[in-house]
C-alpha cells in the first residue's frame, strides 16, 4: 500500500518536529519523504504476527541482573565552562526567550 504524503501529514509532521518547510522546498520535501516512506513500507511484506517487538538488544538477557547504584549527588566540577556553552546567559543562569506572551 503506497502511503501518500498529503499536505495535512506534511504540516503535522513538520510541526511535531519543529521544522519549518518553506513554500519553495515543500514539493521537494514531499517527494523525498514520500520515497523514504514507500521504501520503508516494504517491511509489510514480512509476516510479523505473534512476533514481539525488540526494543533493546542484549538488554533482555541482562534484565535479571539489573545494575543498581546509590543515588548520590556528585557535583559537576566544571560548571563555569558548561555555562559558557549557552547562547545567552545572565549571571549563573541560562537566559531563554519568554515562555509565555505577556498579555
Amino acid at each position: 500500500m503506497e502511503q501518500v504524503i498529503t499536505d495535512e501529514i506534511l504540516e503535522r509532521v513538520s510541526r511535531l518536529a519543529a521544522l519549518d518547510i518553506g513554500e519553495t522546498e515543500k514539493e521537494t520535501v514531499r517527494r523525498d519523504l514520500g520515497r523514504m516512506v514507500s521504501y520503508v513500507g516494504a517491511m509489510e511484506q514480512v509476516d510479523t504476527s505473534d512476533v514481539p517487538p525488540l526494543y533493546q538488544v542484549l538488554a533482555e538477557e541482562e534484565a535479571s541482573e539489573n545494575v543498581l547504584r546509590e543515588d548520590e549527588v556528585r557535583p559537576f566540577e566544571n560548571v563555569a565552562e558548561l555555562l559558557e556553552s549557552a547562547p545567552e546567559r545572565r549571571g549563573e543562569f541560562v537566559a531563554v526567550p519568554a515562555t509565555f506572551d505577556r498579555g
Binding site: A17, V37, E44, V51, P53
Partner: peptide, 23 residues
Amino acid sequence: ILLGTFALSEGFYEQYYLKALKL
C-alpha cells in the same frame, strides 16, 4: 527527522515503528 517523526506519529506508529521493532 521528518521520516522518524512520521514513523512515531499517531496513526502510523504501528505500521512503521512497531513493525520495524518486530523485524
